[in-house]
Design a protein around this nucleic acid. Structure first.
Lengths: 75, 75
DNA sequence: CTTATATGTAAAATACTATTTACTTAATGT
DNA sequence: ACATTAAGTAAATAGTATTTTACATATAAG
């Protein structure tokens, strides 16, 4: 595993949601702040479950939070 | 982690896609057949990356393959 | 009856995700 | 100057996903 480049809009979405802090997002998603930091920095991609939880926090479809970068190449 | 119940339609989608076998799906998704078996049986939920790869195989949006069960409860 | 194919099961090993703890830096306010 | 808050970094550990190997069952075909 580890070929598809996955990006996310977490940082933008935090600011669009009342400037939610990393800490607040972490609490709402049920993870630690370090996990949010790592995700925003693209250090790794999360489990599907965590991805769904973050999308729930932002009340957005999962694919509006996480996406395949350069998707065209992989179709 | 491990609270959100995540389901999937992998088995249905395989049959809707020319009765693709577990082995064929595994190869296209770049994993082993055992991973597909485990996912179809709901033994665990995959990484976000694998979820995207499986969705790509079926040319379907991720959320048409994987979904939160009883979603209402979590909104 | 034998072979091949699809699927299910299981245990151990490996890789990756997530937590915990702790320290650092920058910005803001008193 | 000092305290507070948000964010970055890092290393060790725990927890979960995935692989590997191997065997079992059922079905269909020759």
């Amino acid at each position: 595993m580890g070929k598809l480049p996955i990006g996310n809009h977490i940082r933008k979405l935090r600011f669009n949601h009342d400037e939610m802090t990393q800490q607040q997002l972490a609490e709402k998603a049920g993870v630690t702040r370090q996990t949010i930091v790592a995700l925003e920095q693209g250090k790794y991609s999360p489990s599907l479950e965590l991805a769904f939880r973050i999308a729930l926090v932002f009340a957005s479809p999962l694919e509006e939070v996480f996406f395949i970068e350069n998707k065209e190449e992989f179709i």
